[in-house]
Design a protein around this nucleic acid. Structure first.
Lengths: 149, 149
DNA sequence: CTCCGTGCAAAAGGTTTGCACTGGT
DNA sequence: ACCAGTGCAAACCTTTTGCACGGAG
């Protein structure tokens, strides 16, 4: 994410904290920055490493708690990928995913056409849809090349 | 899943085993039946409980290993839902999901219209798509009613 | 008869919790 | 000054691994 966009998101987070009446600590700032700086989908562990660059003595527990808080506040998203570890995504705009069956890598996919997908009529069943995303499964370039050899 | 459909799938699995030259053990049969009998998306733990109804002394390890083997053979699917535990699905046909943001429940959604979604042009980037599914997020009936009160 | 599959126990992640202390507002 | 946030350690839950035994082909 570009620096000015990160700054914008941090200001937005400042407002969220004030509205909720919760303190804006250095840890919270550092965790959010660490998530926003990456364009992939880091695990909690990867974020902890990044936060340690800023706050060497930071505790794993705190990072886990801050991540939960950020997800709860809608500032970042929690993703559910293949593999045991949860992943996080600072991108809150609608987007889609390509998931490689071989290496489990997840690649973001922006597509205005997919974004305009017409929703099925499930509202009648009582389910209230507020967003969607399309997951494609297949084989990524790297794995395809590896297989070819 | 209906009994005759389960029987059909078990016969199919028998063929898969023979083709692969691997033994069709009672454990493998029991695990597959336990997955097919449920229409939701059970965790490994729920499957272990179900298998214990048939084979009381069955080991967790074995169930985990059989589940891996079934996924690998393409007989069942591994799903990645909210929450720490992996989930399994005996349904291998294309289908879609509605995920409740409140209770994390995942509901299957069949839609011929969604099945015909035209794929974006990502093949040019080297990603080879073999399937897709649409994930809707929102609030389920139960949670909406609970909130209204 | 030969392996592969199984069961047990222990280890290996990833995440959560209890409690005393520290730091924002 | 107050109360929520933090750090530490230990617990917890899910899954994987090493090894000896037993059953399927």
């Amino acid at each position: 994410m570009r620096p000015h966009e990160i700054a914008e998101r941090l200001r937005e987070f400042e407002r969220v904290c004030r509205r909720r009446g919760v303190p804006l600590t250095v840890q919270r700032r550092a965790v959010l920055e660490s998530v926003l700086e990456r364009d992939d989908h880091p695990t909690a562990d990867q974020i902890i490493e990044a936060v340690k660059q800023r706050i060497p003595g930071v505790s794993r527990t705190t990072v886990y708690r801050v991540l939960d808080m950020l997800v709860e506040a809608g500032v970042i998203r929690r993703l559910h990928h293949p593999g045991p570890a949860a992943r996080f995504d600072g991108k809150t705009r609608r987007h889609h995913h390509m998931i490689c069956k071989k290496c489990n890598k997840v690649i973001d996919l922006e597509s205005a056409k997919l974004d305009r997908l017409s929703l099925p009529d499930v509202e009648s069943e009582g389910f209230e849809i507020d967003d969607f995303s399309v997951h494609f499964t297949g084989i990524c370039v790297e794995c395809r090349q590896a297989k070819a050899q």
